[in-house]
């Protein structure tokens, strides 16, 4: 077994923390970003893409990029 040298103890640290000191806060933030980003993409798709009637090369550039 590897020999170990104890430098300090963490026994007196709190076992419940809140805000950004908590894992759950970060996990929740992660899923909020994911869901918010999904909705943002849907909105952008609706507002700038999906309302175009023309898409073939005959009709000129797609409105998605024009």
């Amino acid at each position: 077994m590897t020999s170990l040298r104890a430098q300090a103890t963490v026994a007196d640290l709190p076992s419940v923390t809140f805000g950004q000191r908590s894992l759950m806060w970060w996990g929740t933030l992660g899923f909020m970003v994911i869901e918010g980003w999904t909705i943002a993409l849907l909105l952008v798709s609706y507002l700038c893409g999906a309302r175009s009637a023309s898409w073939s090369s005959r009709d000129g550039p797609s409105r998605c990029c024009s």
């Binding site: 170990l4 104890a6 076992s15």
Partner: peptide, 19 residues
């Protein structure tokens, strides 16, 4: 060099992780 430095104090009788 020598022994690996560590911190002690995490409980062994329940699943505990260091933040």
């Amino acid at each position: 060099s020598g022994a690996l430095p560590v911190v002690t104090g995490l409980r062994t009788d329940r699943r505990e992780i260091l933040i």
